[in-house]
Amino acid sequence: MMYRLFLVASILLLAVSGFAQKRYFTKTGVVSFEASTPLETIDPVNKSAMSVFDATSGQIEFAVLIKGFEFKKALMQEHFNENYMESGKYPKSTFKGTIENMQTVNLQKDGNYPVRAKGVLEIHGVKKQVSVPGTFTVAGQTVRSTAQFNVLLSDYGISIPGVVKDKISKNAKVTVNCSYTPIK
């Protein structure tokens, strides 16, 4: 009897975990950053970020093409790609990590859940361990992730020449906004 119960329980558990092993995905995440100073507004947007997360393990990844950032001024975009980010050499930027408190997010229940992602951020070929706060918003089948964090340009070996130093902030405020749907 005990054995049977155990068997049924393990099958149920397997079924549940199999069901819960759900991945969420987007190809149209929006990543923008702001490095404005009183002298200059710098606020480019990238609308084709890719991101995937695993609802069970909390593993999360983001990838974005540097050349996909759209600026309001052509010269800025050229300098950004050619001089600062060297996008020919380092075409993408990624984040690979884990949502530390994934178990506190109930994907079956609509609402806002504060989360923290810990992992490795790679920009300009430099990898750095980071820990970033964000929010998961569950609305039916879709999950929206939002996060905002600062990137110190010098941390990633991005040097700004003296002539334009006062025009570009040393800190870039990065904003991430992704709307995921489950992978069928």
């Binding site: 084709s48 996909g68 759209e70």
Partner: peptide, 12 residues
């Protein structure tokens, strides 16, 4: 064309 992640991406 801005490059390729999993998909090839076109902008604008």
């Amino acid at each position: 064309c801005t490059g390729k992640l999993a998909d090839v991406i076109l902008n604008k």
